[in-house]
Design a protein around this nucleic acid. Structure first.
Length: 841
RNA sequence: GCGGGCGUGGUGGAACGGUAGACACAAGCGACUUAAAAUCGCUAGAGCCAAGCUCGUGCGGGUUCGAUUCCCGCCGCCCGCACCA
């Protein structure tokens, strides 16, 4: 166990528990309910202002208080704050800014999801099915072949992370790429819209918008068909796509994916190709694995005819061509693409320079010339257009030229692929579909929804437990009544997290959502989640909201469900592991480890550096020790106090005791002030009042800007000021009341006690948030640092409103400046009013 | 490999392009105490005895009167890469 972790579990018999200490907070019992939201989760309490909304009757909807604008975090009275807890323990929070109800996420999420998905489908079915196409007219999904990682021993599909060096993580068997029929949501149909709408998400971090933009990956390019020779029947043409058609003249080969239909045909009759493709398939399906693998290929013997030069180019199968992107086939231009160049050098293929950088005519060697598309370069072999063109210009002229000559068309493509939702696991929602021998794929009837999972499942046999359940899959066809079989695929759990925010607008509704409630509560004002969800979860949710709008479950305004996004950092921790008999890792919780050894057996553990907390790696910690020892207020204060929430933080409990000491000090000061009867001088009273108002200003801005650590720092400052203040008792009590309000979001229990002890009226939770008086924030005099050549050498104290000229005079009179000038005139004198002065000598 | 981030004292971290290190942790010294704990006070980036000066925000350049902040190139770490969720 790390030193830091040890320090917060001191031997409890050494001293009395701080939880029974001098201030009246929060024994362990009370704490548990308060602090179950770990991490940077105090916002729930911050938003917890105002009276409770009425109790929810069975089957009824939550009463709707009148909407108030704008729903600021600290001043909102009506707040809905669902917490979506993912099974691995990470937490996402939503803030609807409307009413005062914190809903427990996880149970409802799981309960709600199958029901909801059923409804989603149903809405489509009611609008009529087409022949031989997915049920429903909206074409939101598709049922088609897709390649997965197959473990032949465990008879199961493996996640990419479960494939280690081409082997199944449990069975150790060689993993095969296998084609299965899978269900897809057709998110790629929305690619353009999802991309364009990113512009409007002004309260999202730019980095997330950028990540989504790159992920969707809109590209403009040329698509055309090569004429083949020597190819098997049906493959007289080879469709390729390129975003750099301006380099077409530099094509020296064509390459196809090992999963390309042509490759599959060739494989059947050519053992060498079959062997190569089989080896490629062992790589697994992840893009990362494909891209980091050594670039390799095999010549097919097939050739294609260059559409301009008429030359024959060889067709290779290459392991780095993705079947999912473009057409699964490319033309290789080694001079201007690094991967193509590496490939060409390896297999002795030609390299033809198409353009040169300004001032150079050196042929490409081992490094491809790939300048930014905005850079002007000299084309020596342009497809069209002049000698000097930027890449952007040349691409457009090349497309136009190809279209003119009838070679191909300019097309826009997206990198974004459809969302495969099929899982062969127990813990997803069943896909509510029935396979009928006569009618084919038929959606389950509305009244039979939700399709629930069976309770009596066995995980003994390898494979999908739903598949070998004796009775569960047996059912009647909803259309013809004949004996039929349920779909045994379940849904990706991402499906659930893609719409829980909508479900929570009417958590007790019989339907997935209730439009009136959805219309009232949506959109989510503030979404808080980890950066690891920047792409998949947040993109799926945006797609889902659009789909739910089309199925009539969400209003039009909700197609962008999250107005503002805040990405919290991850809590990280070291990972501890030992090895089993065959060398596979066995992970251990931090609390089971001490001084690099397992507490139970004394066995030494391997330590892997800090990484995102993950249940599978067991590098998770539980704040309940801190809560039990110091109480919930301290735990919350401590967790908010140091690290800014957007940054990753290595979990360490060192400092929890300091937080407790601070809160104890606040309570001591409160008791002293409560008993105090002294009067202070007007100067001292005013000084304290000014400090208090500065704190109001800074703490408020800190909290609303998600800088909780800075808000806490300002509260430390106010406490220090207060402790040293000679102001009168009245003034001190007033300052402490304000402090109680400012502290309430971080330590609600203590804040109430402090408030009550200093003549606060009612509850601090219901008191209006304090407002800083601008008159008390204004400073009459400011200290201006004086720099000489950019280095601070002195400072002057001047009235805030002093003119530039007057400031310059004062600066030149300054002793340090005089010394530096030594009689000379300064070269330059920069005065930034109210900020700084710089003298250049 | 590709995409996106991050990097500041012994530690967590502050700092609209404007006094680098706020606030806190740990440390040291002192007061109180028979003693300890608790509390209160003081010290503290590094270097030079010091006034003062020099160096200092991962590394190397650049822009600027002035760069932790902006730009370029590296290094290291983290996240994502579509079946972890």
């Amino acid at each position: 166990m790390s030193a830091s972790a040890r320090s917060w579990c001191p031997n409890a018999t050494d001293r009395r528990s701080p939880a029974t200490g001098p201030f009246p907070a929060t024994g362990a019992r009370e704490s548990r309910t308060q602090a179950e939201g770990a991490g940077h989760g105090a916002l729930r309490r911050i938003r917890h202002r105002g009276e409770m909304a009425g109790r929810v009757g069975r089957g009824g909807h939550l009463p709707r208080p009148p909407r108030r604008e704008p729903p600021e975090i600290l001043r909102a009275r009506d707040v809905s704050l669902p917490v979506g807890a993912h099974p691995h323990g990470a937490c996402a929070q939503l803030h609807h800014g409307r009413r005062d109800r914190a809903l427990q996420g996880r149970r409802r999420l799981q309960r709600a999801a199958p029901h909801g998905l059923g409804r989603l489908r149903h809405a489509r079915r009611e609008r009529g099915d087409g022949e031989g196409r997915p049920p429903g007219r909206l074409d939101l999904w598709q049922h088609r072949r897709h390649t997965v990682n197959w473990d032949p021993v465990d008879m199961t599909v493996l996640a990419n992370e479960q494939v280690i060096d081409g082997k199944g993580w449990r069975s150790g068997a060689e993993v095969e790429r296998r084609e299965l029929t899978q269900w897809f949501f057709r998110i790629s149909d929305y690619a353009g819209e999802l991309l364009d709408a990113l512009e409007g998400l002004e309260k999202w971090p730019e980095k997330v918008r950028l990540m989504q933009r790159n992920w969707i990956g809109r590209s403009r390019g040329l698509q055309f068909a090569f004429e083949t020779s020597g190819a098997p029947g049906g493959h007289e043409a080879l469709e390729v796509y390129s975003t750099r058609p301006d380099t077409l003249m530099g094509a020296t080969f064509a390459a196809i994916s090992p999963d390309h239909p042509l490759a599959k045909v060739l494989e059947a009759s050519n053992p060498a190709i079959a062997a190569f493709c089989a080896e490629c398939r062992r790589l697994g399906t992840s893009e990362e694995a494909l891209e980091t693998a050594e670039k390799r290929g095999i010549d097919t013997g097939v050739t294609v005819r260059h559409p301009v030069t008429g030359e024959d180019l060889p067709v290779w199968i290459a392991n780095f061509i993705l079947m999912d992107y473009g057409t699964g086939a490319i033309f290789g231009v080694p001079a201007h693409d690094q991967r193509d160049l590496d490939f060409a050098r390896k297999y002795g293929l030609g390299v033809i320079d198409i353009f040169f950088a300004e001032g150079s005519d050196a042929p490409v060697g081992t490094e491809a010339l790939v300048p930014p598309k905005t850079e002007r370069v000299r084309y020596v072999l342009p497809l069209a257009g002049g000698e000097w063109q930027t890449g952007e210009e040349a691409v457009e002229t090349a497309i136009a030229e190809c279209e003119r000559r009838g070679i191909g068309q300019g097309v826009t493509k997206y990198r974004l692929r459809d969302w495969g939702i099929s899982r062969q696991r127990y813990w997803g929602c069943p896909i509510p579909v029935v396979h009928c021998p006569a009618c084919g794929v038929v959606p389950e009837r509305k009244e039979n929804l939700p399709v629930t999972l069976p309770r009596d499942v066995s995980f003994e046999k390898p494979g999908n437990p739903l598949d070998h359940h004796p009775t569960w899959a047996k059912t009647a066809c909803p259309q013809c009544g004949a004996e039929a079989r349920r779909e045994t695929d379940t849904m990706d759990t991402f499906v659930d997290s893609s719409w829980y925010f909508a479900r929570f607008t009417a958590p007790h509704a019989e339907t997935p959502t209730n439009l009136a409630d959805a219309d009232y509560w949506m959109n989510v004002d503030q979404y808080i989640g980890g950066i690891e969800h920047a792409i998949l979860h947040l993109l799926y949710s945006r797609f889902f909201a659009r789909a739910m709008h089309r199925t009539g479950h969400l209003p039009a305004k909700a197609i962008e469900p999250f107005e503002a996004l805040f990405t919290q950092g991850m809590v990280t921790h070291e990972i501890y592991l030992t090895r089993d008999a065959v060398g596979r890792p066995v992970y251990h919780l931090p609390e089971e480890v001490e001084d690099g050894r397992l507490k139970a057996t004394g066995e030494a553990v391997e330590v892997i550096p800090s990484a995102k907390m993950s249940k599978s790696k067991k590098n998770v910690v539980d704040p309940s020790d801190i809560i039990a020892r110091y109480g919930a207020d301290t735990a919350r204060w401590f967790m908010l106090s140091d690290s800014p929430p957007e940054r990753d933080v290595e979990w360490t409990a060192a400092g929890a005791e300091a937080a407790w000491k601070h809160l104890a000090r606040v309570w001591r000061l409160t008791e002293e002030a409560a008993a105090d009867t002294a009067t202070g001088t007007p100067d001292e009273d005013e000084a304290l009042r000014r400090a208090t108002h500065r704190a109001i200003d800074e703490v408020t801005r800190g909290i609303e800007g998600f800088s909780f650590n800075k808000a806490v720092a300002k509260l430390y400052e106010l406490t220090n000021t207060l402790a040293r203040s000679a102001a009168g008792a009245q003034e001190k009590r007033a300052a402490i009341r304000v402090m109680a309000q400012l502290m309430a979001p971080m330590c609600p229990h203590l804040a109430e006690e402090v408030w009550a002890a200093t003549e606060g009226q009612g509850l601090v939770a219901t008191a209006p948030w304090p407002v800083a008086d601008p008159a008390l924030l204004a400073e009459d005099e400011v200290t201006l640092p004086v720099q000489i050549n950019g280095k601070r050498r002195s400072e002057i104290r001047v009235p805030k409103a002093m003119s530039k000229e007057e400031v310059e005079k004062r600066v030149l009179a300054d002793e340090a400046v005089q010394r530096a000038l030594a009689g000379a005139t300064p070269k330059k004198l920069i005065v930034v009013p109210g900020r700084i002065v710089n003298v250049v000598v």
